[in-house]
Amino acid sequence: MVEPPEPPEPAAPQPAAALIVYAPLTRADVPGLCARLVELLHRERTDPFPCDVSALVRPDLAVIEALARLQLTARGLGRCIRLRGASGELRDLLALTGLDEIVRAGPRAAGLGVECRREAEQREQVWHVQERVEADDLPL
């Protein structure tokens, strides 16, 4: 008697494509990265779209600018990116520049807790501030 063949095992889910950002990263690389991201976003429906930044171990402001441009490119298409494999140094630099919102991967991202607030410049109106003039307060 012949035994029936065993059913095939279900195929493992294919990992979603990701934009891999290599080091060193310069400003000249940004247009090519953004074009590649647009290409990937048109093909893949993953949202937020993963960007592997694990190679960026010594980030600088050119890296931060590039990541901000990538996020703006994705948002222009109604999507967003999520950084994957961000080093502590990259996370700290993103937090320092106020761009830590684009890092949404891992447990540490939720606890960055850095809030950047803009301060009014000279002669610029400050919102939500009520001034009270004291009678003995002489004008300058």
Rank of each mutant, 00 (worst) to 15 (best):
L112A: 05
E89T: 07
D92L: 10
P107N: 13
G111E: 10
G111D: 11
L96P: 02
C116D: 00
E124R: 14
G98V: 07
R69A: 04
E124W: 06
Q130F: 12
G113D: 08
L77A: 11
H128M: 09
A74S: 01
G85L: 05
A110L: 13
R132L: 15
L90Q: 01
W127L: 15
Q71A: 06
W127K: 13
L77K: 11
C80M: 07
A66I: 01
L93A: 08
R117N: 04
I64A: 01
A86S: 02
E115Q: 13
L83E: 02
W127S: 14
Q122E: 15
S87D: 02
R104G: 10
A135E: 12
A120G: 09
R75C: 05
R91H: 01
A109K: 06
A120C: 07
G78I: 05
G88T: 00
L96W: 03
D100L: 07
A135D: 10
G88P: 04
D100M: 07
C116W: 02
R79I: 06
L77P: 03
I64Q: 03
D137I: 01
D137S: 14
L93V: 05
W127A: 15
R75F: 06
L72V: 08
E115S: 13
R104Q: 13
A110R: 14
T73V: 03
I64H: 01
R117Q: 12
V133M: 12
V133H: 14
E65A: 12
A74Q: 04
Q130H: 15
Q130N: 11
V133P: 01
L112E: 07
D136F: 13
A110G: 14
P107Y: 12
L83Q: 03
W127N: 12
R82G: 04
I102G: 03
R108F: 02
L99P: 00
L77F: 08
A66S: 09
R132F: 15
L70R: 01
A86C: 00
A95W: 06
R104I: 02
A86K: 00
C80Q: 13
G88E: 05
D136Q: 13
L90R: 00
L112F: 07
L90N: 00
A74M: 02
L90G: 02
